Amino acid sequence: MLLTSAMSGFTSGMGLLICVGSQNAFVLKQGLLRHHLFAVAATCILSDIILISSGIAGLGTLVKHWPNVMEFVRYTGVVFLAWMALSSAKQAWYGNAHLTPSGTAPAHIKPVLMSCLAFTWLNPQVYLDTVFMLGSLSMPYSGIEKWKFAIGALTASAIWFVAITYGAKVLLPLFRKPHAWRVLDTTVALMMVYFCVSLLTTPLISS
């Protein structure tokens, strides 16, 4: 039963994590820039520990009974994503040459971590995936088996964020060209617009 519950948590967590979202786009970009990789990966993993544990402990049910909490997160996320879409669009338009990894001075760690926290905690999709979905998927388990499921999901989170931060270097030869960064920034801007519009048009909790 240990293997069953842990593997179920691992596959569920990995299935929810491996999607192109705003948080993953930010983490991938930091991985390409080679800036503060450990701090970014650790921030994402520690945040998932809190969110996944809370979801499995029952926070998802609590939040569902207080929809105003999610509505606040929803509209805060809209503002944040709209701002990030504008920033990425400006970078794509002007083609910031200083983004070349080999010639870029590392950004200060504080703004990088603040952005990482914002992409994590102001992203309603994170709550839907880690709190509601994983919390719901853990319901068939009880007692220690429920927490074995949580360990599996947290293992998936750790592997994923380490992989996209440290594994991004595989793409570095491509991103030594400024044009590639403009394409990436354009893609990120379009993604942010899509997520922003989705949040505006789709309630997070059905009434």
Rank of each mutant, 00 (worst) to 15 (best):
A6N: 00
A6H: 03
M7F: 01
S12N: 01
S12C: 00
L16F: 06
L17R: 04
I18K: 03
V20Y: 09
V20M: 12
Q23A: 12
Q23Y: 03
N24Q: 03
F26N: 07
F26K: 02
L28F: 08
G31R: 03
L32P: 11
L33H: 11
H36D: 10
F38W: 15
F38Y: 14
A41Y: 03
A42G: 08
A42W: 08
T43V: 15
S47W: 06
D48I: 05
I49K: 03
I50T: 14
S53Y: 07
S53R: 10
S54F: 07
I56P: 03
A57P: 13
A57Q: 07
G58K: 13
L59R: 12
G60E: 05
G60N: 09
T61S: 15
V63W: 11
K64H: 15
P67K: 09
M70Y: 03
E71T: 07
F72N: 02
V73D: 08
V73Y: 00
Y75I: 04
V78H: 04
V78M: 07
L81F: 15
L81A: 05
L81W: 03
L81C: 12
A82T: 12
M84E: 04
M84P: 05
A85P: 01
S87Y: 05
K90I: 12
K90N: 10
W93Y: 12
H98S: 12
T100V: 11
T100E: 07
P101F: 01
G103M: 13
G103R: 14
T104K: 14
T104L: 10
A107M: 10
K110A: 10
C116S: 14
L122S: 02
N123M: 04
V126L: 04
Y127P: 11
L128Y: 01
L128R: 07
L128G: 05
V131A: 06
V131N: 07
F132W: 09
F132M: 15
F132P: 12
F132N: 08
S136M: 14
S136K: 11
M139E: 14
M139T: 14
S142P: 02
S142N: 06
I144C: 00
E145H: 10
E145I: 04
K146G: 05
W147D: 02
F149T: 10
A150P: 09
A150G: 04
G152M: 07
G152P: 08
L154Y: 08
T155F: 00
T155G: 06
T155D: 01
A156I: 00
V162P: 00
T165Q: 10
T165E: 08
T165M: 10
Y166A: 07
Y166H: 13
Y166W: 15
K169A: 08
K169G: 00
L172H: 15
P173Y: 09
P173N: 06
L174V: 15
F175C: 14
P178G: 09
P178M: 05
H179A: 13
A180V: 05
W181L: 14
R182D: 00
V183Y: 06
L190E: 01
M191K: 00
F195P: 03
V197Q: 12
L200Q: 08
L200T: 06
L200D: 03
T202G: 02
P203K: 13
L204D: 11
I205F: 12
I205W: 01
S207I: 02
